[in-house]
Simulated assay, not measured.
Amino acid sequence: MSVVRTLPQQVNPNAPQGIHPKHVRQITGLAFMGVIAAWEEFLERTLIRYLAGAKTNTGYTATPKFGRANNLGHAYELLSQDPNYDPSKHYLKVSDARWVWRTADFFFSQHQYKLLQSKCDLLSNANLIRNRIAHDSDKCKAGFKSAAIWFLQPTNGNLTKGFSPGELLLSIATRNFGNPLNGAGVSHFEAYMRTYEDLAKGIVP
């Protein structure tokens, strides 16, 4: 996103070059959607593979309570509790961080998904931002508003008219991410990127 933000910006359509600020915000939102999709795919793939006995390059693997799945298909059946589970037609609830670490608690006596527990609020608000980027429904608008207020804490509890996910993501993070990100002059987008990277490195050490 740093590359996009360094592009010259202009609001005059007749200007010789430059990108309109609203397009920067739209690009930021679309990039965020892609990151969330990749994050959920990462959670699903690691959870399935750990249950089937996979190890990381360092030799780490989650410790099972009841034994390993026979293969990836069997792991899907166990995690979904559906013997007819078809990954091409169904999905696991990996968008719900609490479901992920609670499910890991059930299947593993030792695992790294507990890292998600302290980040549940951040991850659930990321979903609200993503949903608003993807949908224009009243429900998604209300969810995004609650997320934006959680981050920005405006004095009157209101956002400016037309406030968008891109504007939130590009604004400076001042709370909720913890030190050293809060007050470090990084955007909410960048703070989320660092959070996802740290979590991923913890889950696959």
Rank of each mutant, 00 (worst) to 15 (best):
L168C: 00
S187Q: 10
S164T: 15
T58N: 13
H188T: 07
E190L: 13
Q112R: 14
G18I: 07
T56S: 14
Y76L: 03
F32N: 00
I27C: 07
G183N: 09
V3I: 14
A134I: 05
S187A: 10
G178P: 08
P8F: 12
W150L: 07
T46H: 09
V204D: 06
I129T: 00
V11I: 15
G157L: 04
N14Q: 12
N158C: 05
N12L: 11
Y50D: 07
A97Q: 01
F144N: 00
I133W: 00
T195Y: 01
A191H: 07
R194M: 11
H74L: 08
R194V: 11
Q17A: 15
T63K: 15
G34Q: 07
I27S: 08
L79F: 02
L78N: 01
C140Q: 05
K145A: 04
C140T: 03
P21K: 06
P165E: 02
L123E: 04
F42I: 02
K55C: 12
K55E: 14
V94N: 04
S164I: 05
R25C: 09
I172V: 15
N57T: 13
A142W: 00
K141R: 14
T46W: 07
V3K: 10
W99G: 05
K141P: 01
A62E: 03
L199D: 03
K145V: 02
E190N: 11
S187G: 10
H188N: 12
S88W: 10
Q10T: 15
G34Y: 07
F163L: 06
E41D: 14
G202D: 06
A97K: 01
L79S: 01
L199F: 03
Q26M: 13
E167Q: 15
V24N: 05
S124W: 00
T61P: 01
F108P: 03
L159A: 04
T56W: 06
H23L: 15
W150M: 08
A184N: 12
H90V: 09
L115W: 06
A191V: 09
K145M: 08
L122T: 03
G67S: 10
R45G: 07
Y50F: 15
I36C: 11
K89E: 13
Q110G: 12
R49C: 09
S88Y: 12
S171G: 11
P13E: 06
P83I: 09
I172M: 13
L115S: 11
S80Y: 04
N70G: 12
F151W: 05
A31Q: 03
A147I: 00
Q110T: 14
D121F: 04
N57D: 14
E167A: 13
A191Y: 07
H90K: 13
H90W: 10
R49W: 02
T160A: 13
G143Q: 00
G59T: 10
L169R: 02
A62F: 05
K89Y: 07
L123C: 09
P8H: 14
D136W: 02
I129Q: 00
F108A: 05
Y60C: 10
I27N: 02
N156E: 09
L30P: 01
S164L: 05
L43W: 06
P16G: 12
G143W: 01
D136M: 01
G185S: 12
